[in-house]
Nucleic acid binder design. Structure first.
Length: 1173
RNA sequence: AGUCCCGUAGCUCAGUUGGUUAGAGCACCACACUGAUAAUGUGGGGGUCAGCGGUUCAAAUCCGCUCGGGACUACCA
């Protein structure tokens, strides 16, 4: 006969290992998908991680969230396919390779470099690098119990994947949503590439930096003002290195400016300067206005000044000035004052230095005013050779200190020291001087500096190289996302965001302020832009498939533009791996292709595309759409846009198979501007559809002190260690239950052990209890022979009612993506209701007597509870849930398979989710039981106060009851209370029998509305006249009072009358409930109490001796006058409780075999037990 | 710099229309219970609900300001 497995100890890591083996052997994950064949699909997209970094604990968090809903939907009967993916392109990989090989961007493909590496070899290295930690990722995926199909992942560097991406791009090209433009963009010299705005918006990109800033004076040439000295215009800059590229100054049209006569603080020369009136006192201290000009000596700290003129910004426009640092002369118009609408008076002088090449506003205002530009910095972030004066500037220098390595800085410093000290500019140079500092020194020497200071402001940094970004004029391909802005906003409103605020706020605001998407990346390892252009830009071809490319090359070969076709082996229409491995679409191969159109040679646009486009294209590219699986996307489009015939049914069958859009995606909140956006943008612009319907953006995982985890700080939690130690289930449960997914989680391993003890320990014990007694009784669940719920006793019906309420609530919470609340409800059910009430109160039913209907009902009830909990928890704790399911069901599996009953499945993850049966939910019953729990707790608290142990039976509880309904409820659960608190009877009392003291409680909610401002007076009145009010309300239903001349009628609803005391009794009260306990102990009660003590001592001895729960025993007790009576009067009770076959009272018990026990404070004796038969 | 979110016990969190003495779990102390017990029960200590001001009969809850934390936005010269 089959038995339920019994265990010695809970070992969660062991359970995980066992289940993992089981799943692998049984192919449970595969079955959970294939067994749903033909059912409605529930579409999930896996955001591709990059395998060149190690997985962290936050990945466990993010993947737990994904896993929960995929498993839950599978339980509901949907088919949930989960294709893994790898993000393989992009800067992080390139940088890792460069670092590994000890090269920089300038060495790649540059034959003049001593460290030359061909693009071909470089890309080979990238291809290898990107899969470096694949095994670690697979391991963590497996160990944490994340079900995703890693056998056939999508890989963004695959030719098939690239072909789909090209198809999408060509689609946008055809819609004229791709264009090439020249703009000022964030550019990272260190990475050698422009950065898109969403890259710049990665958290941590903007950092506070201290910069040397300067207020500079530009000498005006054609002044119309009548003044006594040279006239200068003041402008402030935080980037002095852009000053050599200055070609204009911008003023605010309506801003008031003043002309101030004063002395240059450095040279002491008399001069007149222009600045905004509002900012006058920032540069000229008010108290210095009193000083006399004739008293001033060069070098004085306090410099006199006087206002000698005033002008609006619009009047200043058109003034020309001398070039500040004439290293290079610009072609065309320059050095003019222009009007700019972005100019404010919050900072600086109210006049903005314009270097059109290094600022977006600068660029625009210059273009508008026909001002030419100077670009005296190259793409490496170095000055052009012309920017040198031999003393302060040396040409070809990095403009930002952060770009220099320590070594370079040292070399530069030595050079500077030599030159500057020799020139007598600095007596002893102690540290490297930045370009900014030296420009300021040069300006100071030339009398062009007005003020210098250090200024802290936030400045964008490259998210990968950590170096500051430059704004730089770049040629780039853009996606015209602004054209689809309104539609994206509209479609976003149909997406269910968790939490909502991320969708409306963070994402919504982002869409409102959308810029065009800069697609270009000047790197090597990525998807090439599939556009070929003639040198004169008159002819252009965008390629949308390998077949297209093959044909175009064939044409080029025919026209002599190319010698041979690198795609000659490709067979169009053949989607096999072999066919797609006959070529490579990456650099340098793509660049070697030259096309031909109308007699002109076409060359590939050199850029790669932003990797974010790669991942945003995954819904289609993972399916090689539209070259394969065409219907999976197209069906989805018809369905979601209401053009399909069959509405997507829930759990229904026969719906059209679709894999678009996703029903669900989940990633970190940091992906809002990343993957969430690119998915949305690509779907909107290509298909006029959302890419996902539900999205959970989860928060950060912080350390237990709320700090960000980082390898550098050493506070990062290793997921492998944590999972090995505590098991995946406890780790997952802790992370899910502790905080809402979208809140940041303070990760504390102590929290995991708490979950381990409280939830898993309790469940394990509860199962152990079931298994122990079911095996003793040779009981097995029989799905076809179950006691009907209506025939089970109150306690059973109660826990089942609770259980079905739980099913209902948990299902709803999973449906609305609130897993933390589902987890908390399950915890509460297991701990408070199942273990600490149902099992505790039912224990005797399991170990008493022969099999009966009631006993059977108890087993069935407990079994159902455990089984359902196993199922409800399985999405969060997949190992333990399955383990418990298998323990509870494996003994009857064969029978269930034969009968095709619900328990036929070998794993909980293959089962069908139970549905809440509303007719089992009995609210009234749940209220009754809550009352029983409350009253029991109150009685126990009286016992505690009176120092009366629970083993001592007491006679009577009195409960004053004011309404019949409550009384009936308590009546129904009376026996449970009495058993729980060891009292013999409950008596309901009212005034007719007993004097009851009552308190009056006013209902502020109803009274507040009734009396408004008189509330305080009524409150005071109520406090003084409680007894009278109670009397009136009880007899007539109302009480009339006068406050401040107003009449207030107190009615039943306005007051609560609470019995609080019965004189002469020990009383406890809580809310409206009051209980009283009779604490007198009669002789009979005393004897019963002693009998129970004896039972307890015998039980302890049985346990100590290691007897089996079914062993019968012989008990010998040393005589004692008081004890004898107690034992004799309760002999049957003692014997049946302890399975004693024979109880002997002996005069002298042998000390050697007996144990001395204290029965109570006054009685001691000796007891010995031995096993019978 | 601006916008938004948050601030409740030592820790983790509940506390949706404003309503009487602000709750739970963990941790700590004491006592008890235990033939499922790495559990549990009862009691205890622990809170100016970040601070200040306002609205109101009544504020953890609504409003304003300040402080602290976080996220987002930003070419801010």
């Amino acid at each position: 006969m089959s038995k339920y497995p019994e265990y010695k100890q809970l070992n969660l890591p062991q359970i995980s290992a066992d289940m993992l083996r089981f799943w692998e052997e049984q192919k449970t994950f595969e079955k959970s998908v294939t067994s749903r064949e033909g059912k409605t699909p529930w579409v999930f997209y896996e955001g591709p991680p990059s395998a060149n970094g190690l997985p962290g604990i936050h990945h466990v968090m993010a993947r737990a969230i994904k896993d929960i809903f995929c498993r839950f939907k599978t339980l509901q009967g949907y088919q949930v396919k989960r294709k893994a993916g790898w993000d393989t392109h992009g800067l992080p990989i390139e940088l890792a390779v460069e670092k590994g090989l000890g090269i920089t961007k300038e060495d790649i493909g540059n034959k003049n470099s001593p460290k030359y590496l061909s693009v071909e070899d470089y890309n080979k290295a990238c291809r290898k690098e990107v899969m470096k930690y694949t095994d670690k990722w697979e391991e963590v995926t497996k160990k944490m119990g994340y079900w995703v199909d890693m056998t056939d992942p999508y890989i963004t560097y695959d030719n098939k994947y690239i072909e789909s991406v090209w198809w999408l791009l060509n689609n946008l090209y055809k819609k004229e949503l791709l264009y090439k433009g020249f703009t000022i963009q964030p550019y990272s010299p260190a990475a050698g590439t422009g950065l898109s705005s969403h890259e710049l918006n990665q958290p941590g990109c903007y950092r506070d930096v201290k910069d040397r800033t300067a207020t500079v004076q530009f000498k005006i040439q054609n002044s119309k003002f009548k003044i006594n000295s040279d006239l200068y215009i003041l402008a402030w800059t935080t980037t002095p290195w852009t000053l050599p590229s200055n070609t204009a100054l911008a003023v605010g049209k309506d801003i008031d400016y003043v002309l101030v006569e004063s002395f240059n603080p450095f040279s002491g020369k008399l001069q007149t300067t222009i600045l905004a009136k509002e900012l006058l006192n920032k540069y000229f201290s008010e108290k210095n206005a009193e000083l006399k000009f004739e008293d001033y000596k060069a070098g004085d700290k306090n410099i006199p000044f006087k206002i000698v003129g005033q002008a609006k910004g619009s009047e200043l426009a058109g003034i020309t000035y001398e070039q500040l640092l004439p290293f290079v002369k610009p072609e065309g118009d320059a050095f003019k004052v222009v009007v700019g609408d972005f100019v404010t008076t919050t900072d600086g002088t109210g006049i903005v230095h314009i270097a059109p090449s290094f600022g977006a506003d600068d660029f625009q205002v210059a273009r508008k005013n026909n001002i030419s530009s100077l670009t005296l910095v190259d793409k490496r972030g170095k000055f052009l050779p012309q920017v040198q004066d031999g003393v302060f500037l040396y040409g070809e220098e990095f403009v930002k200190e952060a770009y220099l390595s320590d070594e370079e800085k040292k070399t530069e410093f030595e050079k500077q020291k030599k030159i500057l000290e020799a020139a007598g500019k600095i007596k002893e140079l102690k540290a490297y001087l930045s370009v900014d500092e030296r420009i300021v020194l040069k300006l100071q020497e030339e009398g062009k500096l007005f003020k210098k200071e250090t200024y802290e402001h936030s400045y964008p940094h490259c998210w990968r190289t950590d170096k500051p970004v430059l704004y730089y004029p770049l040629d780039s391909w853009f996606i015209k996302s602004t054209a689809a802005k309104d539609r994206m906003i509209e479609l976003n409103k149909t997406i269910n965001w968790k939490p909502e605020s991320t969708g409306t706020g963070r994402f919504g605001n982002w869409l409102e302020n959308l810029n065009d998407w800069n697609l270009s990346r000047s790197r090597f390892w990525g998807i090439p832009i599939p556009i070929w252009t003639s040198e004169d830009r008159s002819e252009q071809i965008c390629i949308g498939s390998v077949e297209d490319l093959q044909k175009e090359i064939a044409n080029a070969v025919a026209k002599g533009a190319m010698k041979e076709n690198p795609l000659k082996d490709f067979k169009s229409g053949n989607n096999s791996e072999e066919n797609y491995n006959t070529f490579d679409l990456h650099k340098p191969y793509a660049d070697n292709i030259v096309l031909e159109k109308n007699g002109k040679k076409l060359f590939r646009e050199p850029d790669l595309i932003d990797v974010w486009f790669d991942s945003g294209a995954m819904p289609y590219a993972q399916l090689h759409y539209p070259f394969e699986n065409r219907s999976l996307i197209d069906n989805g489009l018809s369905l979601s846009q209401g053009r399909g015939s069959a509405a997507k049914g829930s759990e229904g069958e026969g719906a059209a198979v679709a894999a678009f859009p996703a029903d669900f995606i989940a990633e970190g909140v940091d992906q809002t501007r990343g993957w969430f956006f690119t998915l949305h943008a690509i779907a909107t612009m290509n298909f006029d559809s959302v890419a996902y319907k539900n999205v959970v953006s989860n928060g950060l995982v912080l350390d237990k002190n709320g700090n960000k985890m980082s390898k550098r700080l050493g506070n990062a939690v290793d997921p492998f260690i944590t999972i090995d130690k505590y098991g995946a289930d406890a780790t997952r449960w802790y992370m899910i239950a502790n905080a809402a997914p979208w809140d940041n989680l303070k990760f504390d391993v102590d929290g995991i052990s708490e979950v381990q003890r409280q939830l898993f320990g309790t469940l394990y014990n509860t199962y152990g209890f079931y298994a122990l007694y079911a095996n003793v009784d040779n009981f097995l669940i029989d799905e076809k022979d179950i006691v009907p719920v209506k025939d089970r006793q109150e306690l059973d019906r109660w826990i089942l009612s609770k259980l079905h309420s739980l099913i209902k609530d948990v299902t709803e919470l999973y449906e609305t993506f609130e897993p933390h609340r589902a987890a908390r409800l399950i915890e509460e059910f297991v701990d408070e209701h199942l273990s600490n009430w149902y099992v505790r109160l039912s224990r005797r039913r399991f170990w008493k007597g022969e099999m009966s209907t009631d006993k059977k009902a108890a087993y069935e009830t407990l079994h159902e509870c455990l089984l359902v909990v196993a199922q409800l928890m399985s999405p969060i704790a997949p190992f333990f849930g399955d383990w418990m399911y298998q323990n509870l069901t494996s003994p009857i599996r064969e029978k269930a398979i034969a009968n095709k009953t619900p328990l036929q499945y070998e794993s909980v993850h293959l089962t069908q989710l139970v549905k809440a049966e509303t007719n089992i939910i009995d609210v009234n019953l749940e209220q009754r039981m809550a009352l029983a729990q409350k009253i029991s707790s109150m009685i126990l608290s009286i016992r505690k106060k009176e120092n009366l142990r629970v083993r001592q039976p007491l006679q009577k509880i009195q409960i004053p009851v004011l309404d019949k309904e409550t009384q009936a409820k308590i009546e129904a659960v009376k026996d449970l209370i009495l058993a729980e608190v060891n009292v013999k009877e409950i008596e309901f009392v009212d005034e007719s029998k007993t004097q009851i003291v009552k308190n009056l409680k006013l209902n502020f909610k109803t009274l507040g509305k009734k009396c408004g401002a008189n509330m305080k007076a009524v409150q005071a009145y109520g406090g003084e006249n409680g007894t009278k009010i109670i009397h009136d309300i009880e007899s007539t239903g109302k009480h009339i009072l006068n406050v401040n001349g107003a009449e207030v009628i107190l009615e039943t609803e306005d007051v609560e009358i609470i019995p609080v005391d019965i004189p002469g009794w020990k009383v406890a009260n809580s809310g409206p409930i009051t209980v009283a306990l009779d604490v007198t102990i009669s002789d009979v009660l005393k004897q019963e109490g002693l009998a129970r003590e004896i039972v307890n001592r015998i039980q302890n001895l049985r346990k100590d001796k290691g007897l089996d729960v079914t062993d019968r025993i012989l008990v010998k007790i040393q005589e004692n006058a008081v004890l004898n009576t107690a034992i004799n009067n309760n002999l049957n009770y003692i014997c049946s409780e302890t399975l004693t076959g024979d109880l002997q009272l002996v005069q002298n018990l042998n000390n050697a075999t007996a144990t001395a026990v204290e029965v109570d404070e006054t009685i001691s004796t000796l007891i010995s037990i031995e096993k019978l038969n």
